[in-house]
Write a protein that binds this DNA or RNA. Structure first.
Length: 602
RNA sequence: GGGGGUGUAGCUCAGUCGGUUAGAGCGCUGGCCUGUCACGCCAGAGGUCGCGGGUUCGAGUCCCGUCACUCCCGCCA
């Protein structure tokens, strides 16, 4: 007989009655009746009830075993009497009579209970992650993550992509987020950087003649965390294709994403391929966001002209100074009480806006604060632009374009929830395309790349030479699902001459471009295929599929918001000898005691 | 870097207007219990009320500072 098990804790059924079996697992729960003891034995696969009574010489010993101890049980599988069957358990028709019990690993008193559904604070959960991972919810999430990644790999491989590995110790990338740096022992004063993404390597693989690349790629960015953004490190399904147009990239990845969401989405509806494509400018106009949630049915409109020079003086004055007016429809809101409108107005003020103007269409007339300031023609224009009519309301945001778009976008989301309009049980995908290639930094006034400096500008060299940089679009796109940005990607700029020109517009001279992007720039001088790709975030995909509000729930060993690993005690101080070897000296600001991180993990 | 929330037993939390000995559930320890499956019943141990300072006759409670965790803004090509 196997020393640990003949079956798993989820395996035994009526068929096994009469067999002598061996199970190993964790003591999930004990029910001690004094002269009769039940032990629920748990492993990765399930739960089996084991039973022993006072007649057994082992009885005392088993009674003393604490929950979460690991034991091996050998005994006879018996049928439960009809009144003691547990239908909630897959193994609920049988139980195992304990004849032999070995305690493989006794457990101390637990800092958090594994059985039950008591909620624990993040700190406890992260410090004792191995216990939290035993619990059903987290255990299921990590199993799901594994299955999703396996499915992604299979789908990518079947679509003709090859999986690669690229360096973890590499060079600092010149644009983008803050890098994690690793000091070099052999080259004092120099540092490796962990890759923010394998961006340049995948492009170099294209220049190396491989046709379709993919990788479950770790990415490292030293930026602050959010609920949907893990600090430090995360994973992307990174891929790149040679001789590909934007449509080719979309055609390649859409079935992979739609397929995975259908496979693991618990029957929720998934946008059928091809996914809708919305130009960036339209997204900002209609949804006030570059990652619109299409479960929200509200579509905004520009109504600046309705108010220009009109009798609503506040708006008219601002429009003269360059402001725009965005209208957000609120279907059936005419029936809402006054407090509904007041509450939204209060919210707008709390958000730093002057307020939220609105008009209510009811009983054939226009009511509300600005209803009387509008003429019949203007009201008609508003109704037409927003698709509203009697019984509906329309809210207005008036501000400079960027500000108006952003705030109207948030008001749109707010209204959707207040009116209970968000579509449930669905994954709504779309591509946001035609991103601007450049934007003006409002603080410095300088023109900068608005997204990825490696994207091909639409119109190529001619556009760069003849157009206002702020008008130029790039072959740059994001894929968005339910308001979550899953990925951005681009058709890359593979032409050294166009690269030089594109970087010149962003203020890099030729020498600087050659120096900072040397590897890639050099490769493109010796024959590079046109290519493009994208990199959906895996943690976020799993988070959506697991229906979790926080990305830490789908990562086995996440860091906390301060980018600390409470279980392992990272980051940690190092021996002075190691610092000397690296020729580093630590200079701390004033007196700050290093926080005791790992005292629970000694 | 900035803003909000939280911090009381091992854990999850309650604690009124500032007033006697700071409570509950789970867990833990001991006792009883042979059909439970969140077993039940009885008893017990367990507290730097995050930390420091202040106001007050008196502070878990009010004020100031600080630390930790968390959510958000900035940041994240």
């Amino acid at each position: 007989m196997h020393p640990y098990r003949t079956h798993t804790c989820g395996a035994l059924r009526l068929d096994h009655v009469g067999a002598t079996v061996r199970l190993s697992g964790w003591v999930h729960r004990k029910r001690d009746h004094g002269n009769l003891l039940f032990v629920d034995l748990r492993d990765h696969f399930g739960l089996t009830q084991c039973v022993i009574d006072a007649a057994s010489p082992l009885f005392e010993a088993v009674t003393d075993v604490r929950p979460e101890s690991v034991i091996t049980v050998t005994g006879l599988v018996v049928r439960r009497t009809p009144d003691t069957v547990n239908p909630a358990l897959a193994t609920g028709e049988i139980e195992v009579r304990m004849a032999e019990v070995v305690v493989d690993s006794p457990a101390d008193v637990l800092p958090m209970q594994v059985a039950g559904d008591l909620e624990y604070g993040e700190e406890t959960r992260l410090r004792y992650r191995f216990l939290d991972l035993r619990r059903d919810r987290l255990h299921r999430n990590i199993v799901l993550r594994s299955a999703v990644i396996a499915s992604l790999r299979r789908r990518m491989t079947e679509a003709g992509f090859m999986e690669f590995q690229t360096p973890i110790l590499t060079a600092s990338s010149p644009e983008g987020a803050r890098d994690y740096l690793v000091p070099s022992r052999q080259h004092p004063g120099r540092f490796y950087a962990l890759p923010q993404a394998p961006q340049q390597f995948k492009q170099l693989l294209m220049a190396s003649g491989f046709d379709r690349y993919f990788q479950i790629a770790p990415c490292f960015r030293d930026e602050d965390a959010r609920a949907d953004r893990s600090p430090g490190e995360f994973y992307q399904l990174d891929f790149e294709m040679a001789f590909a147009t934007q449509d080719d990239v979309f055609d390649a990845i859409e079935p992979v994403l739609a397929g995975v969401f259908e496979e693991f989405g618990n029957g929720k509806a998934v946008t059928p391929v091809p996914f809708p494509r919305i130009p960036y400018d339209d997204a900002m106009l209609k949804y006030g966001s570059d990652k619109p949630d299409l479960r929200n049915p509200l579509v905004m409109a520009d109504v600046t002209e309705v108010f220009r020079g009109g009798s609503f003086a506040l708006f008219a004055r601002n429009i003269d100074k360059g402001a725009v007016v965005r209208a957000i429809p609120a279907p059936k809101a005419a029936a809402m009480p006054r407090s509904f409108f007041d509450k939204l107005n209060d919210w707008a003020r709390a958000e730093g806006a002057g307020g939220l103007a609105y008009v209510v269409f009811a009983d054939g007339e226009a009511k509300g604060p600005i209803g009387k300031n509008l003429e019949a023609g203007g009201l008609d224009a508003i109704r037409t632009a927003t698709g509203t009519g009697d019984g509906d309301a329309v809210f207005f945001v008036c501000a400079r374009k960027a500000e108006a778009e952003k705030f109207a976008g948030r008001a749109r989301e707010r209204l959707c929830d207040e009116l209970g309009l968000r579509e449930a049980d669905t994954f709504r995908f779309l591509w946001v395309v035609d991103y601007p290639a450049y934007e003006r930094n409002p603080e410095t006034g300088r023109i900068e790349f608005s997204h990825n400096p490696f994207s091909m500008p639409q119109g190529g060299m001619e556009a760069l030479e003849t157009m206002d940089p702020l008008e130029i679009k790039a072959f740059q796109y994001d894929i968005v699902c339910n308001g979550v940005e899953l990925s951005s990607g681009a058709i890359r700029n593979h032409r050294p001459d166009i690269m030089l020109k594109a970087f010149a517009i962003a203020g890099y001279d030729e020498a600087e471009t050659r120096q900072r992007f040397g590897g890639l720039f050099n490769a493109f001088r010796y024959g590079a295929p046109p290519h493009g790709g994208c990199a959906p975030g895996i943690d976020r995909i799993v988070m959506m599929l697991a229906d979790e509000p926080n990305i830490r729930e789908v990562i086995a060993f996440p860091m906390n918001q301060q980018a600390q690993d409470l279980m392992m005690g990272a980051p940690a101080e190092v021996e002075p000898a190691r610092l000397r070897e690296l020729r580093l000296r630590v200079e701390l600001p004033r007196e700050k005691k290093p926080t005791a991180l790992a005292d629970g993990a000694e």
